[in-house]
Design a protein around this nucleic acid. Sequence first.
RNA 1: GUCCCGUUCGUCUAGUCCGGCCCAGGACAUCAGGUUUUCAUCCUGAAAACAGGGGUUCGAAUCCCCUACGGGAUACCA
Length: 512
Amino acid sequence: MTRLRFAPSPTGPLHLGGARTALYNWAAARAMGGTFILRIEDTDRERSDDKWLPTIFEGLRWLGIQWDEGPDVGGPLGPYVQMQRLPLYARYARALLDAGHAYECYCTPEEVEAGREREKAAGRRPMYDRRCRELAAAERARLVAEGRKASIRAKIPLPGTVTIEDLCKGEITVSHEEIDDWVMLRPDGIPLYNFACVVDDLEMRITHVVRGEEHTVNGFKQVLLFAALGATPPRYAHIPLILGKDGRKLSKREAVTNILEYRDKGFLADAVFNYITLLGWSFSGDRDVFTREELLARFSIDDIGKSGSKFDEEKLLWMSGDYVRRLPRARFVAEAQPFLRGLVPDDAFASATGFLGNLLGCYQERVQVLAELAGKVAWAFGDAVALDDEARGKIEKESEARAWLAQYAEHLENLPLPPSFPSDRSAADAAFVLPTPPGTAPDAVASPFAGPSRLEHDARAFAEARGVKFGRFVHPVRAALTGTTKGPGLFDCLFLLGKERALARLRAAATG
RNA sequence: GUCCCGUUCGUCUAGUCCGGCCCAGGACAUCAGGUUUUCAUCCUGAAAACAGGGGUUCGAAUCCCCUACGGGAUACCA
């Protein structure tokens, strides 16, 4: 049975690198038909705080990464939180001690540190000097009598070499002399990372471990410990880090990038998921966008790249926009709801085909992240609209603009435009699907109201009758109606606005 | 310092394992056009890379060595 795990420590929210690690483990497990486990490594009592747990879970869930076993869902090999497994570590430590693979060390952290400094000053490797490794009984008794508490250190076999058959990097070998007699258990019985990690990977029958390459050195220690326990280690894949623009490690300790910030900015989870996957893995030579199913059909740990990648938010933005554009209209409207609070009442989201659906539809190819929406659609609400500088310019630079606007308002009065207030509009709008595709016939939709293409047809005739080029005419009208020089097709806007407000805005702009 | 790992367009990468199909392909970004009532979308095109040096070979982005540069690790953190 294939089993993989993601083992975050609750020292902060889920950041980008953690999300990618989780994603690769998840994808590998799913692609191989295995099990994906979530385990919490909270043995650093200084920095761990359970308050981060919900945030981490939420981040993973937002990305659509589901775990089969974990602290909240349980499972046959729990508990899945290390601080709840202390007796287990004590048992393993005892056995290792008895078998001579570990020893008690009575040095204080300060003494160890001082020794390290000495080594360093002497130009040697700053390591623990292994002084408690072969402690005479009398000496030990003296230290105990002093009231010292023992920590347990791994007894690295000397000499020798360890090699990791890394799924990502290939074979990596290091000499035992390079490896410290590291601390497995603190005097208070709380294990350290490498120890708890090995015990749990063993107990939880983990078969593959995908983790950041900052763990490579830990990998050697862990392989040695598995050997001491007479067990086979999992297959490791130490993957390169995600780097910031400066080429430095993207760490949760420096950059507090919570993956949920992307959700709050209105990035689509699927797009973020897709983009993160690409940071070190590629779907194929000519495609960047793919579904989860397609990913699982192709994903393989040994295809993960060997070199670090820089995070590029520009491409993430593009990808988010691409996902937004391809969203079914109803989904888009639903996704937009949290970003329109205060502007649009919640019950307006019930229908994706009425006024709101049409309004939002006009912006689906105009936003990359949902948070852009509120500012862009605001013109369609409220009675009047304030013109931005560019819009004002469009009217002012055209000497006859104000006259056209006034005349156009008169003209519009005789056209069957929908009324202005959304509550009366939904049924009428449902007959149209905005944005209006180019070249739509004027009366393509049967409706008591004039649709956008009919309005355009009419406006062209209006401009032509005055000997004005349509392009020149249209700009001041857009400015008057929406207050900006950008946005959806003008007649979609006009239709959306409805009669009363359109006339009022045209007249307001006409009188300056 | 020491140990480990890495190096293809500005960025993410395909190709590297099993040398020739690669005077290196795709995507983002950039620039130039086209469509268009604006913006956006969409379409077309351009510019843009095998870190450097030695080998091996008929032939190297692909194999070997060295150098340079980058990253990671050197904790009673994870």
